[in-house]
């Protein structure tokens, strides 16, 4: 039996871990970018980013004032008892985290422009559900910032444009975004399915560790090709020039309708925040993305 209280406590902890401490793979990617940067201004930006990441971790403060819109991914074991408690528990966690960490209130009614003040609202926090075999409950939180979300894009290409159109749209999205999404960014890219399927896959692709190449060798090659192409633009850290514009490209796909070729690009700022925990049937909790004492 998974109690609402357990889920709430774990979710508050996950939000806190996500907003104050980057996963190791993201930190490593930023360090690598800093070491390789030769542009003076670009290097200074990466230095500020790394100093900021360190300071945030040490002082347990959110690394960015935009603590994002809270998105949960729940992998629910079909045998887990108490799943009906999870949604309320996650909403409660968002309210508590807003006060305790704190988080910036980021849930605004799009018609009245009123901020609810506690990071909950209609469909917020957003919860993605996946039913899996087993008895464990896995929760991932992704606090998603607005600046990078704003340059994310969807193209409904003609299948005639194919891979060539796909590559062009990804590169054009990076160039058009320029300095806006706080580069170096991570690109979640997905093709196929339909408009929302591609978008969902692209966003979920951002949850994959940056140092893990795509298990599909063809896609791994394409990810590298697009990353190198994006980095040869010279946009650089914060769009002030330099070698690293994109830390990683993560590609996913779904089969497409014969008439459609949807391509989704979701852009993630350098603060690629995520945290995952597993709650086992005996009540044990394991944190997968962060070291928890």
């Amino acid at each position: 039996m998974v109690t609402g209280k357990t889920v709430e406590n774990v979710a508050v902890k996950l939000i806190q871990l996500a907003v104050t401490e980057l996963p190791q793979d993201v930190k490593e990617a930023l360090h690598k970018a800093y070491n390789e940067e030769t542009n003076k201004i670009g290097k200074a930006q990466l230095k500020a980013i790394l100093d900021n990441v360190n300071l945030a971790e040490k002082t347990c403060a959110p690394m960015c004032q935009d603590t994002g819109v809270i998105i949960f991914h729940v992998k629910a074991g079909s045998k887990v008892d108490g799943l009906d408690n999870v949604e309320t528990a996650l909403r409660n966690a968002a309210v508590r985290a807003t006060k305790e960490i704190p988080l910036r209130p980021n849930a605004v009614n799009p018609f009245t422009q009123k901020n609810t003040g506690n990071n909950t609202g209609r469909f917020i926090p957003y919860i993605h559900w996946e039913i899996v075999v087993g008895e464990t409950l896995e929760i991932t939180v992704m606090p998603k910032g607005g600046g990078s979300e704003n340059v994310s894009a969807l193209a409904m290409l003609s299948p005639n444009q194919g891979i060539s159109g796909f590559k062009k749209f990804v590169i054009d999205t990076v160039i058009k975004a320029g300095a806006k999404p706080c580069p170096p960014t991570v690109l979640g890219v997905a093709v196929g399915g339909g408009a929302e399927i591609a978008m969902n896959l692209a966003k979920a692709a951002l949850l994959k560790p940056l140092n893990q190449p795509n298990p599909n060798p063809e896609l791994a090659k394409l990810e590298q090709e697009l990353r190198e192409a994006a980095n040869s633009t010279g946009i650089g850290p914060m769009g002030l020039g330099g070698k690293t514009t994109v830390l990683a490209v993560k590609i996913d796909y779904a089969h497409r309708h014969p008439a459609s070729y949807p391509v989704a690009v979701v852009v993630q700022c350098w603060a690629a925040r995520r945290a995952t925990a597993r709650i086992y049937s005996d009540g044990t909790i394991e944190y997968l993305t962060h070291k928890v004492a």
């Binding site: 500020a48 980013i49 900021n52 300071l55 403060a61 690394m63 960015c64 914060m238 700022c269 603060a271």
Partner: peptide, 11 residues
């Protein structure tokens, strides 16, 4: 221009 996201440094 201040480094985007360097919010704790700014604080």
């Amino acid at each position: 221009a201040f480094t985007g996201g360097a919010a704790v440094l700014a604080a």
